[in-house]
Design a protein around this nucleic acid. Structure first.
Lengths: 232, 232
DNA sequence: GCAAAAGTGTTTGGATTACACCCATGC
DNA sequence: GCATGGGTGTAATCCAAACACTTTTGC
């Protein structure tokens, strides 16, 4: 089946890039690392690393995420794979993008050994990045928005207990639109949420009720009732 | 940024697999090749090949498609990338799946030099395939269905001039559901179609009108009117 | 005329929209 | 009391589902 010998291909490398989206104060940010080495020294980049010889792609993305955040139980979603022969000036590096969603307040960033400086940068304020990383980010962000429309991933970016207005604000930001409060609440009526008796505190207006996503009921609905999450 | 030397990674290979979906007689088929060499000699497989040193990923998928079908102007869509360290018994081969859509009657299959036997197999009748190719097929087929719901790719599988019932039949097959004829026609009213004066011939019932997809108007609607294709 | 599929109209109920209004809290 | 956002109700409208009905062809 393969008409070219394996040893003609020794110059390939394979990496995974981990786009970590963090939500805070109504804005989606990306965790960016500042490159300490050439090429693109001093430029901001998406955290990434070569895939180890016996490592699955997903595992390498998990490793990168862990080294930067210490988090282990985060869902990772595969995005696009980039393999332009000229995307890396030092050789042929094909890279597979993954993305993770989390709330910035839930943990401390820790610069990994290979990262000089690490910073959250709002999606819409990202500078020109190293390699083809602007391309990767744009493609991955599009996929995130697509997921937000058909899967309950927004709850990975919201606090464990959130208000309905916080949820609305996230969707308004992602879809760059304004929604009517009453209509938004009607629309999400079919999503299984747990209503807490607890309320917001120390706000200078009527305190809002807190909700959590009811994942158990959600899974049951998907399996038994052909339920499908939809937000447009 | 990279803490492992490049030369530790010389055993990697990278391939692309090209899932070619062909439509005929109300069924979606996949173009399968029979492996002439070990491993998995005699098993059916998704056509694929190693990526050439200076070749972009998409170009390698186009090359595979061309060698089997002689077609050059087919849209290819990237699907999932598979990189389990044990997926290829002879070494580490990471593969990126692409898929193409076409109508079987439009051309002749030609076995490429590396393909012993080539055959269309209906999606639901695929045997156990070589490597992790059943996994790749399932993942790619899911993505196809997702695309059918939000982009006008169905027209790549229908004849240039088609009847509305043919279009409905394709969606019924893909979504495994039955639709009401009147309601289907109301639903697709917003899709820009060119209505031909021409009619079906040699059918033993009332001949149906023929339509084509109006791609020019579609592109204009997307660009100017925020139009978005939707079929659920 | 009959079978088969094309093609259209109507009714109904549920969702979406726009908008108005009341409520609880801090200051 | 007032500013601020939380929270709800209603009427108009649009959309989708269900179903019935007419039309045109081959035999």
């Amino acid at each position: 089946m393969y008409k070219i010998n394996f040893d003609r291909f020794f110059t390939y490398s394979f990496s995974s890039d981990c786009v970590i989206f963090g939500y805070k104060d109504g804005q989606i940010n990306m965790l960016s690392v500042n490159r300490d080495v050439e090429p693109f020294k001093g430029k901001w980049a998406i955290p990434g690393d070569l895939v180890y010889p016996d490592e699955d792609l997903l595992d390498s993305a998990k490793r990168i995420l862990f080294e930067l955040t210490n988090l282990t139980d985060i869902d990772l979603h595969q995005a696009e794979t980039f393999g332009n022969p000229n995307r890396h000036p030092q050789g042929r590096v094909i890279t597979c993008a993954y993305f993770a969603l989390l709330r910035i307040d839930d943990f401390h960033i820790q610069a990994a050994s290979w990262a000089k400086e690490v910073k959250w940068i709002p999606i819409h304020e990202l500078p020109e990045m190293a390699f083809d990383h602007n391309l990767i980010l744009n493609s991955t962000y599009s996929l995130l928005k697509q997921k937000l429309a058909i899967e309950p991933v927004c709850f990975d970016m919201l606090p464990e207990k959130f208000t309905l207005s916080e949820m609305q604000r996230l969707y308004e930001y992602a879809f760059d639109t304004e929604m009517d409060k009453a209509n938004f609440r009607k629309k999400i009526k079919s999503i299984p949420l747990i209503s807490h008796s607890e309320k917001q505190k120390n706000v200078k207006h009527r305190p809002a009720s807190l909700f959590s996503f009811d994942e158990i009921t959600y899974e049951k609905l998907v399996a038994e009732n052909h339920y499908s999450f939809k937000m447009y």
